[in-house]
Structures are given as C-alpha cells and as structure tokens.
Design a protein around this nucleic acid. Structure first.
Lengths: 251, 251
DNA sequence: TACCGCTTGTGAACGCATGCACAAAGTCGG
DNA sequence: CCGACTTTGTGCATGCGTTCACAAGCGGTA
C-alpha cells in the first residue's frame, strides 16, 4: 500500500511533480477512456504499427477525435503536429499515469460461479493485476486451488492481504455478505474495491469503490427496449398525438 | 414486487403519452440510479416497510437526497409532501418506466468461465431477465445443458434468437470473436447488447450497447492507487506527516 | 377551520464534460 | 530555405447533470 514506498523493490515509477499535478486534474470519465486507448494502442503495437493519428485512434476507440486529443492533453503533449503520435511513447505514458508500472495484487472474495471465473482469468485481462489470494467461507473450498491459487478461509483476510500486499479487493459474494467482507478488506488496508454484489457499500472516504452491477446494466437495456417499443408504437399508431387527457406529445 | 409481471400476456404495459414524453427525457445517469433505487425499495418492501422519505431512501442508495428527488421527479410525482413515498407505488412506477413489466429474454454467447457463471445466475439478478439461449462454437459444449439450458452452436444464433424472441444479447466470448458475434446478434434482430469482451463494438445506430470491462475497471482503480500514493508522497515530502504503517493521511 | 411542522417537487445557479474551430508547430517537396 | 500541407493542442462556447434553496402542499392538532 501507500505504506512502504521505499525505493527498494516494486517501487512505482514516481511521477514528476508536473505529472502529479496533471493526474489530480484528470476527469474520471477521461481516465476510463485512457484505459481504452491503452488497449487499442497495445493491439496496434502488437501488429507492428508505430505511429497513429488522433483520427485513426479515436475511430478505433469509438470516440471523436477532439475528445481523444483533449484526453491525451491531460497527460501531457506527446504528439507531433503534422504527424501524429508514436504508439510506444503513448503506451508508456498512459501506463505511467494509470499506475500500471507497478503490479497491483488482487484478492477475490467469494469463489462461487463468478469468483471462479474471475480467478481463472488468471492475472486479469491486460496483465499487471495478478490474483494472489482467494477467499470463501465454504469449508469444502478451503485449500482447493482455483486458477492455481489455494482458497483461504475468509477469516484470514486481514493476515493474508497484509502479507501479500493486496491492493485491490474484488467482492463476488452473495449480497448479504458483501458489506461485511468489504469492512474486513478495508481493515486489512485494502483501499480499492471492485464490487460485483448488488449492494451499495458503505466505506470510509479514503477507500475507492467501483461497482459492476449486472442487474442495473440489464435494467438500463430494458429501459431502452421499452423506450424504443413506445416510440415505434406511437409512430405506427399514426401518432394522433393526444392521450386521454389530450396532452400533445411532440413539438 | 411486481409479482405478476406478465399481466397475463407478453404484451408490454403501454406507457401513457405523458410518461412516454418523460421517458424520453430521463438522463442516462438517472436511469442507472433508478435501477438502484428499485433494488433498495424492493428490499424494503420485503422487510415490510411501506413508506419511506427521500432522506432515508437516498442514504440507502448512496446518493444525496436532492438528487434522488430530482431523479424521481423525472418519472412523475408520486410522493406525498410532508410524508414521503409509498414503497409499493414507487416500485411499480419505476418498474414500469424501466420496462420491467415485460420479460426480456436473454441469450448468452460464449460459454467459457464467465458464460457459465452468467448462465448459472439463472434468470438474472432481480428476475425479469430469463436466460433462454446459450451459444458457443466448441463442439464439446453443444447440447450440454448449462443452468438448465442446452448450448446451441453459434451458427444457429439467428434462428434461435428469432424463435425465442431474444431481446438482449450478452457477449462473453474471447475478444477476437466479439465483433462477429455482435454482427450476428444484430442481424437476428437483437437491439440490446451487453458486452463483456474488451473490444469496442461497431453497431448500427438503432442498437444499444453497454459494456462491462473488467480491465478498464481495474485500471481506473490502479489510477487511484497511484494518485493516492503520489499525494501521500508529496505530503510526506513537504512535511513529515507519516505514521508507522501506511495509515492514511487525510485533511 | 386555522395553524404548524415536515417533506416533496422544482426553478435557478453552478460546475464539469463535450464539441468546435483555429492557431501553433511540425513535415515534406521543390 | 521556403511555402504548402497536415495534425496537434487548446481556448471558448454549449449543453448536460448536479446541487441548492425554497415555495407549495399535506397531515396532524387544537
């Protein structure tokens, strides 16, 4: 964690003061997109592409070119006017800003269907996120290796997380257990949590939580289905434009 | 809860014209929160709570009260001043706006670790989203039931999706297959896609895509770890404000 | 019925993110 | 060495979403 930032070993590449200032100012939405750019750029690098323009990159990333340039400007000016960006340079700068020069060890709690899937990803997509600890309450699972790592009992969270310097905790438990697991992770010094349980977690201010909520995603899609169906209906309806109360619908 | 969801038939409960207008105007961010409110409210209903104030509900949902009221105002005025909201009433109105009065059948493509986990959720969290079709390319999987549903070959997507009236497609394939699978889903008439593959999908305008990107989530967390570490560094740099072991320093 | 206290609903101010448009800065050909 | 062309980086305007603050409305009480 933030604790032993001795210069010794797994030292994160320190940011220059100027970059530090910048990192503080990057909008959350831009950070998410930077991660996407990084993936696209990595793919390009693998295919031997060495240079790219904002236009090309933005298309591949599914955003518009102006936004992409602005996002990149948050991390500094590493392009060449009239030419574009050097893929390798961009990759390394984005990695640095995202803190990917350091390994973040991950603990997965709750080895059910989803937990299994996560553990088997084996070092999360994109690498740099080795899964180093698994936890569950089920006695039948304790000691069984999943994705190469033996499952520990949930009571050992604190000790194991501290020992293995876990920096990211992933909660894949049933909803009722989520808050309690979260509390234990926090008291083990974990400051970043990825929550798959459909529960609103209460955490101290210094802990960052991101949630992945399948039910919510599905319901958002459902909303769009419904909206579309209604639009279609009102069109095919001939849209006489008034309901029971005679309210007019469209300008 | 919306126990009798189908109301007898597959017919979606039609929105009143006034609601239709409203639905069009609800900000995307608010839709996502409405889904959260719905879950919290359902939990309350199960515990016998019948009324709730914006203050209580907002705390349970992890937002501030003003935002909650504004979100609810997008769907109409169903509260009672001086009292609060009737839980049941709110639940049914949110369900209606989100289109949950209709069942949305779901197809999962790619029955790997994640696909297995999704299929086994068996009718997605929160119900109303029955998984009715599974697809993969692996010959060993075809015909094998997962979560009660036999896996079909991916070439049958079009036929099966049309037949089972799939309205939501979930892509859980390896990245290289995602775009092709997406195209097939679209040509089978699926208009909503939930994408777990770390790929930017290209779709026509009339198709809605939501993506769940684990790598991006992890990298956003990584960014925050890094930012924090740097802040801590710059602080302990200027003034020695650091205890023994990584206790966080907060203003 | 009239008053009081509480909670909703919303107009208005604010702040952040997106999109535009262009000057700055570089390459390339002659 | 110069001029034409290309692409970046960014100031500014626009629009959306969040927050604030308060009037309107309702139940309870005398």
């Amino acid at each position: 964690m933030a604790s032993q930032r001795g210069e010794g070993e797994t030292t994160a590449t320190p940011l220059e003061p100027a970059d530090r200032e910048r990192a503080r100012a990057i909008p959350e939405a831009a950070v998410a997109r930077l991660a996407v750019y990084l993936r696209v750029l990595s793919g390009m690098a693998d295919q031997g592409v060495t240079a790219v323009s904002s236009e090309e990159l933005s298309q591949a990333a599914g955003v518009n070119a102006a936004k992409l340039r602005k996002d990149l400007s948050y991390i500094g000016s590493y392009g060449t006017r009239g030419v574009g960006y050097d893929v390798e340079v961009l990759v390394s700068h984005i990695e640095r800003i995202l803190g990917l020069t350091r390994n973040h060890s991950v603990a997965v709690v709750g080895i059910g269907n989803l937990g299994h899937a996560l553990a088997n990803y084996g070092g999360f997509p994109g690498r740099g996120f080795p899964v180093t600890a698994l936890f569950d309450v089920d006695a039948d699972l304790i000691g069984v290796p999943v994705g190469g790592i033996p499952v520990n009992h949930i009571d050992e969270i604190t000790a194991v997380c501290l020992e293995r310097e876990v920096s990211i905790g992933v909660i894949a438990t049933p909803p009722p257990a989520a808050q309690s697991v979260c509390d234990r992770l926090v008291s083990a010094g974990v400051q970043c949590i990825l929550n798959f349980a459909p529960v609103v977690l209460q955490v101290p201010d210094n802990v960052e939580v991101r949630k992945v909520d399948l039910a919510v995603e599905m319901q958002i899609l459902s909303f769009h289905v419904a909206r579309r169906a209604d639009e279609a209906a009102s069109v095919s309806n001939g849209n006489n434009g008034l309901g029971v109360d005679g309210m007019v619908i469209r300008p």
